[in-house]
């Protein structure tokens, strides 16, 4: 459990599948995430099982994003394609409950996830790919410290046209400057 002020990152459980599905098949949500292929509940549960496997292997760490005020699951985020020698990983995040868009919750989840990646997994660089036509996401990534590093032309075919994507990345030294590691105060008796 990684707790922030408004959201907490936690492991996914099988009964999250229903919540995820209710939002994930929404075309407006999915357009930024990948291809518009409807997914089923069994498929989603299989995916959740896979997140447990890949975490054990150390290749991927997937979290549910939960609202602190009511324990509602509003999205997922992950570090994947973790490379042990390069100490690099790709980041993905989706707040798929649209009701909670534009409230800074994604930003807080991103900060928690980067904190986890750099200070717990000891990564050196983290990158992400974002649709060029998703300015809301790009702004959030910039605010937590990502910078534009590359541009993929015609990278994604959606709704009849090819779209460009942007590669953004952040280095451990850059994150350390923005968010130095802080140790929680020792409790008495520890």
């Amino acid at each position: 459990m990684i707790e922030g002020e408004k959201v907490t990152l936690r492991g996914l459980q099988l009964d999250d599948a229903g919540t995820i599905l209710a939002h994930f098949n929404d075309v407006e949500v999915r357009q930024y995430l990948g291809h518009l292929i409807p997914i089923s509940k069994d498929e989603e549960q299989q995916w959740i099982r896979n997140t447990w496997e890949s975490r054990q292997k150390g290749t991927e760490h997937v979290f549910g994003i939960e609202l602190n005020k009511n324990q509602q699951l509003i999205g997922t985020c992950s570090l994947f394609d973790i490379h042990q020698i390069n100490r690099s990983a790709e980041l993905g995040i989706a707040i798929w409950n649209k009701q909670y868009w534009s409230k800074g919750l994604g930003q807080e989840a991103l900060r928690l996830l980067l904190n986890y990646g750099f200070y717990f997994l000891n990564l050196h660089s983290i990158f992400l790919i974002v649709n060029e036509d998703n300015p809301r996401a790009i702004r959030a990534y910039e605010k937590v410290g990502f910078q534009h590093s590359a541009h993929h032309r015609d990278a994604l075919f959606q709704n009849g046209i090819y779209k460009d994507t942007i590669l953004m990345d952040i280095l451990e030294t850059e994150f350390q400057q923005l968010h130095p590691p802080t140790l929680p105060p020792l409790k008495k008796g520890e």
Partner: peptide
């Protein structure tokens, strides 16, 4: 098209 910074060791 740009780069992935410090992505390979």
């Amino acid at each position: 098209g740009g780069k992935r910074r410090q992505a390979s060791y």
